[in-house]
Design a binder for these strands. Sequence first.
DNA 1: TAAACTAAAGTCAAAGAAAGTCAAAACGGA
DNA 2: TCCGTTTTGACTTTCTTTGACTTTAGTTTA
Lengths: 156, 156
Amino acid sequence: MARISDIIELFIKELLDEAHNQSVEIQRNELANYFNCAPSQINYVLTTRFSLDKGYLIESRRGGGGYIKIVQINIDRQQHIKLILDQVGNSIGKMKATGIINVLKNRELITERECIIMRAAISDRTINTPVNIKDDIRANIVKGMIIALFNDCGRE
Amino acid sequence: MARISDIIELFIKELLDEAHNQSVEIQRNELANYFNCAPSQINYVLTTRFSLDKGYLIESRRGGGGYIKIVQINIDRQQHIKLILDQVGNSIGKMKATGIINVLKNRELITERECIIMRAAISDRTINTPVNIKDDIRANIVKGMIIALFNDCGRE
DNA sequence: TAAACTAAAGTCAAAGAAAGTCAAAACGGA
DNA sequence: TCCGTTTTGACTTTCTTTGACTTTAGTTTA
């Protein structure tokens, strides 16, 4: 029931919190062993929960003494908005879109209430169109809202 | 003979009553199993009895650890919101939708920034779908945003 | 020093676990 | 009987978990 991926995600985020330098190194096999899961599960967590659009950078090394390093990137607002708009592209799924909106909130670029509004606007149920265009519309909505809110970016 | 849909509806409403925060999470298959009906019956109940117009928000996730979450606004305490939802209806043009959003702002129910986000979300350019469904989607988005904002969880 | 070994991490696809969709069949009231 | 509502089930989509196989890098050995 409780997703192991979520538990691992939380664990890593706690590690990041503790490490004040906003980056942390793990051993894939060790972690997999600790959580009693397949090592590739760690990769799954990293790609789905610690992707670039969520504000993380992964760097790693194989072989003896290998490691995986998770870095929380810290960029200024303008760059960040630009990065996010790029990540949205012309089509975006609900998961990814929600992730992006959450990042905006975590970085305190939007408030809790604004976050709630945005998430509602891109929910799968509200955009009840044929599947094939759903993600396109969602991309437009996400970008539209972000641009409207931060349209001073780029100016001055 | 009592319709199973009505029984399920009641059951969910009881769950919502018990839940302090006016929101509840269910497992579709589990519930279907409990009531001995087809899983898709649950979807039927949700779409016919827990629609946006009735003041409910549904959010869900597939795959392992999936769930369906039903959120309710307190219609009694917020009759004015219900009135606004009714005004939106099943389909709404950009002009009228913008008007409603402006009313929310004038009554200081939403901030200037929230107003900007909402207007962006329902603009004609962001909702780039075939004309015939554009106003339907817009109605959903407006209602979804309003319900999300005015349910009990949404208020910090 | 090159080859062999060991110790990591990466990839990818299949299997599993949910929920969603849609239309046909069944039901029930006017 | 007819028509709108409900029920059912086959099929689809999305997300997660697992495991076999690959790649890379350091270490040992002939």
